[in-house]
């Protein structure tokens, strides 16, 4: 068992290591000018120095905090409204088009509108991201409720559960797996929108701001490094949500 696991981790490390080596080889061979492709070692050094004294930490935390705020708003409004919509088929039919339409509209196209409504401050960034993420949560929760196993609801009904009890004891758990799919997608989307907003809706800090600054000053090691850190943030959030899902929705995919 233990060695099986080690073997698995070892295999998982092969891809990233190979990428690192290819990157290094391309750099050493001078296939791409160092101006466009700094060495990976130089890039990691830049991440390190920026983390220690270059303000990367606060930028990272700002972006994380904005993302979590947007996500929090999306979840707080998305889950209850999604349950109501999912439980009411006529209501769902009547707004299905609107949800699909706005879900398909690029959130970035809303930036100017949200800037007019909410001003240039932090909140307009959070609001756009929250709006985009909210639709994803809403859709998934409603879908989860609509696809609740009828047999379980009938079983509760036969046992004498009231409508309220069926909601609390059965529906809520039935839509939980799909809700988590929505929450996970929503947090990723919120991060994307926040980073883009930090780049283009004037911002004083955040990873997006740092990326655009690196581009303007042509600090490519910092540019690559910040992209890498954004990736780590996105991957980390996804990992945390997967872990939460596995723990809270232990029956997902097994029943």
């Amino acid at each position: 068992m233990q060695s099986d696991r080690l073997t698995r981790y070892a295999w998982m490390a092969v891809g990233p290591l190979a990428l690192f080596l290819v990157w290094y080889a391309v750099h050493l061979a001078g296939l791409v000018t160092p101006k466009l492709l700094p060495s990976p070692v130089r890039t990691l050094q830049s991440v390190w120095t920026n983390a220690i004294s270059g303000g990367l930490g606060p930028d990272f935390l700002r972006t994380l905090w904005r993302t979590l705020q947007a996500f929090g708003i999306a979840a707080a409004f998305g889950v209850p409204i999604g349950i109501v919509i999912g439980a009411n088929e006529k209501l769902y039919r009547s707004i299905e088009f609107l949800i699909d339409f706005f879900r398909s509209t690029p959130a970035t196209a809303m930036f100017p509108l949200f800037m007019i409504i909410f001003g240039l401050g932090d909140f307009s960034k959070i609001a756009v991201a929250a709006f985009a993420a909210w639709l994803v949560v809403l859709f998934n929760v409603a879908y989860g409720v609509m696809n609740a196993r009828q047999t379980r609801i009938l079983a509760a009904k036969v046992m004498g559960a009231s409508r309220a009890r069926i909601f609390k004891d059965v529906m809520f758990y039935e839509c939980l797996p799909q809700t988590f799919v929505g929450l996970r997608t929503a947090v990723s989307l919120a991060l994307v929108v926040i980073v883009v907003a930090e780049m283009f809706i004037g911002s004083d800090d955040g990873l997006g701001k740092r990326i655009i600054d690196s581009q303007i000053t042509f600090d490519l090691p910092q540019l690559y490094g910040t992209i890498l850190v954004s990736g780590i943030l996105g991957y980390g959030l996804n990992l945390i949500f997967l872990g939460l899902e596995k723990w809270l929705v232990h029956w997902s995919g097994r029943a």
Binding site: R152, V158, R254, A255
Partner: peptide, 15 residues
């Protein structure tokens, strides 16, 4: 009354 469904997978509460 008690009722036992054909599809036990979908009748029990997996949570």
């Amino acid at each position: 009354i008690g009722y036992v469904f054909q599809n036990y997978r979908e009748a029990l509460f997996p949570w």
